[in-house]
């Protein structure tokens, strides 16, 4: 995510630690950092969550409004995801319009939620072809210490799970909780030379050759994938990463629910 420089000494330390099976923060290669989820942290949002994945800190707010459906999906609600990489979160983030990495991040988070059918958007239709509920998922990165893909996905899922649709204020009956039906979990693995490390920390991410994010559902089925960075994976590595993602996903899923 960032282009800043990592010393050779640090690269060597990070690699050798991982090679020995114990990463610089003491984790095993397939062990994610500690995940802390706090639901409902912003009262002005219809749903919100703050997620800490290690020291990576992300806050997600859900705003609901009434809008028009897309012409090709006249009976379903609309989902829109944006990420702001604010300068507060890292010396490498700059103010201004979203850069390609922020756009990719938002689209990968969006894809995991959309393709897993986490929210039953058919239940968010008000008047077919005219009025549907629009969900805005706004991801605000507060502190960047690696692996924004997973932290943002967890934040978005946790926030959606607490969202109350403000129907009363719009004169559309009683408020109701967002119809959340599935629980996608995104797991990102970084490749450092010959090693695969789950949930890369900042230094690991900065020296990674390639990255693969795999979003699985509660059945272990694959709902979204995204390979990133300039390196490559062998097909065997991809298969190993998927298997690890299924395993890690199963372990993390309960902590996302409110």
């Amino acid at each position: 995510m960032s282009d800043d420089i990592l010393s050779d000494l640090m690269r060597d330390y990070v690699y050798r630690s991982a090679k020995a099976g114990r990463r610089t923060d003491g984790r095993a290669l397939d062990e994610p950092r500690k995940l802390a989820v706090e639901h409902g942290v912003v009262k002005t949002a219809e749903g919100s969550a703050r997620v800490k994945l290690g020291n990576t800190d992300v806050i997600v707010g859900i705003k609901m409004s009434v809008g028009q459906p897309y012409p090709d999906t006249p009976n379903t609600g609309v989902l829109s995801t944006t990420v702001e990489l604010i300068p507060m979160a890292s010396p490498t983030f700059e103010a201004g319009p979203p850069r390609p990495d922020a756009i990719e991040l938002a689209r990968v988070v969006d894809r995991g939620i959309r393709e897993s059918k986490m929210v039953n958007v058919a239940k968010l239709c008000i008047t077919p072809k005219e009025k549907v509920w629009v969900m805005f998922i706004d991801i605000h990165v507060l502190d960047f210490d690696g692996n924004l893909f997973d932290a943002s996905s967890y934040g978005a899922a946790a926030a959606l799970a607490t969202t109350i649709v403000p129907a009363k204020a719009q004169g559309l009956g009683d408020d109701f909780p967002l119809p959340v039906e599935h629980w996608p979990v995104s797991v990102t693995t970084a490749k450092i030379k010959d090693l695969l490390v789950v949930d890369p920390g900042l230094d690991e991410e900065r020296m990674a050759d390639a990255r693969l994010t795999v979003t699985t559902d509660e059945n272990g089925d694959i709902r979204a994938m995204q390979k990133g960075l300039k390196g490559s994976f062998s097909y065997d590595e991809v298969k190993r990463i998927i298997e690890t993602s299924q395993k890690v996903g199963r372990a993390l899923r309960p902590s996302l629910r409110p």
Partner: peptide, 12 residues
């Protein structure tokens, strides 16, 4: 593999 993306629903 230098590009890999997926969306939708596939079992392993």
């Amino acid at each position: 593999l230098v590009l890999l993306q997926m969306d939708g629903h596939l079992t392993y």
